[in-house]
Structure formats: structure tokens, C-alpha cells
Computed example of a mutant assay.
Amino acid sequence: VVLEGEAADLPGLRELFARFGFRPLQRSVWVGARTVEDHIGPALRQAGFDGSVVVFQADEVDAAARARLARLWRLEDRAAELRGFHRRLFEHLTEAGIAATEAAWRCVEAAPVWYRVAVQEEPPFPLDLRGDDYPLEPLNAAWAAHLQAMTSELVALWSSEAT
């Protein structure tokens, strides 16, 4: 919660909150996912904003409240979106018969789309609302494995473009 009278700090706070995956709930209230370690507190202190913000951490909630929150965050819809994106992304990346250079270009072109979908658009819901079948980690693991497998093609693409 941004304290009243701290309007001069708002641009810097917005940038810092966005960098740490927080999303605005309303003008002066930002919500972020629960993390094992407090990253926002030290970042606020380092940036000189610790006196501008009050940070609240929510305790565990019961099963009914978790189910209600999952509905409010539309986590089933989000999971379906991620599964569909995962399928479409890898159909595009691994299309049969494409040349190595084309495959490398598809990785380059897909990278900002993956980042937008998997990082920027991921709601800052509490982590314990995710079920074991939530598809974000499998998507990210598949993306990382694909990039690893494409290392030589990506290096060759970069080398050919650098000259």
C-alpha cells in the first residue's frame, strides 16, 4: 500500500513493483505473489522507498477461501490459456521439415511472445493457489530445454548476422 502524500515516489514505485511482478489492484494498492523469501522489502529499502510503502503479507487461508480466490483470479482459464499457448508455441517451433536457420529464427521471434505470456501476463496470485497441474512450470521447462537444444543453431544464426 502506497502511503498518502507520496505521489512524487509513484513513478519509481510503479517501475519497482512491475519489476518484481506486482500488479496494481487500485491506484495505491499493488498485489504480488507470495515468495519464499522477501524480495520487495530489501528492494524498497535500497531504492529509498521503504518509508513510502506499507507491505502486508497475507497468512495462509482455508480451502474455501483458496477456492474463491482461484475463481477470482480465473486460474482455470489461465491454465487453459497456458496449455493452449504451450501447444501452439511448440507446434510452431518444431514444425516438421523446417531448416535449421528457420528453426533458429522461430526461436528468436518467439522469445518476446513467450516472455509476454509466461512472465508479464502471469497474474500475481498467491503461489499456493496453483494446483500440481498448473502448466507454467512445464511450459518454462520446455522452453528452456528447447533453447538449450537449439544452442548451436542460434549461435550459427547470430554469427551469420554479426558478419
Results as ranks from 00 to 15, higher is better:
39 H>V: 12
129 L>H: 03
32 G>D: 05
151 T>D: 05
123 P>F: 04
62 D>H: 07
9 D>Q: 01
123 P>R: 06
17 F>E: 01
3 L>G: 07
27 R>H: 11
40 I>E: 15
50 D>P: 00
61 V>Y: 04
26 Q>L: 12
95 E>S: 11
132 D>E: 14
116 R>D: 00
10 L>H: 05
32 G>M: 08
78 R>T: 10
84 G>T: 12
144 A>F: 02
135 P>V: 13
16 L>K: 14
137 E>K: 14
120 Q>L: 09
37 E>K: 13
101 T>P: 04
99 A>Y: 04
53 V>P: 09
128 D>G: 10
10 L>E: 08
135 P>D: 14
3 L>R: 15
46 Q>N: 05
88 R>M: 02
20 F>L: 14
97 G>A: 12
140 N>Y: 00
87 R>I: 08
139 L>Q: 08
87 R>V: 11
16 L>Y: 10
41 G>P: 03
28 S>R: 13
112 P>K: 02
133 D>I: 07
103 A>V: 06
111 A>T: 03
72 L>C: 01
40 I>A: 11
152 S>K: 11
106 R>D: 03
47 A>R: 13
25 L>G: 02
66 R>W: 03
11 P>S: 05
65 A>D: 05
16 L>V: 07
90 F>H: 12
82 L>S: 13
80 A>Q: 09
136 L>G: 04
47 A>H: 10
113 V>G: 09
162 A>L: 10
38 D>V: 11
38 D>F: 06
33 A>C: 03
114 W>F: 08
159 S>N: 08
114 W>D: 02
163 T>Q: 15
39 H>L: 08
63 A>D: 13
113 V>L: 15
133 D>Q: 07
110 A>S: 15
81 E>C: 02
27 R>Y: 04
145 A>T: 06
16 L>E: 09
129 L>A: 09
124 P>T: 07
58 A>H: 10
75 L>I: 07
120 Q>V: 06
1 V>M: 10
20 F>V: 00
121 E>K: 11
94 T>L: 15
129 L>I: 10
129 L>C: 06
134 Y>I: 10
17 F>C: 00
114 W>K: 03
38 D>L: 09
77 D>L: 01
92 H>P: 00
155 V>Q: 10
126 P>V: 13
108 V>Q: 06
39 H>N: 05
147 L>I: 01
95 E>C: 08
92 H>A: 12
56 F>A: 14
23 R>E: 01
124 P>Q: 08
120 Q>N: 00
45 R>M: 04
118 A>S: 05
137 E>S: 13
30 W>D: 05
24 P>E: 15
136 L>S: 07
7 A>K: 07
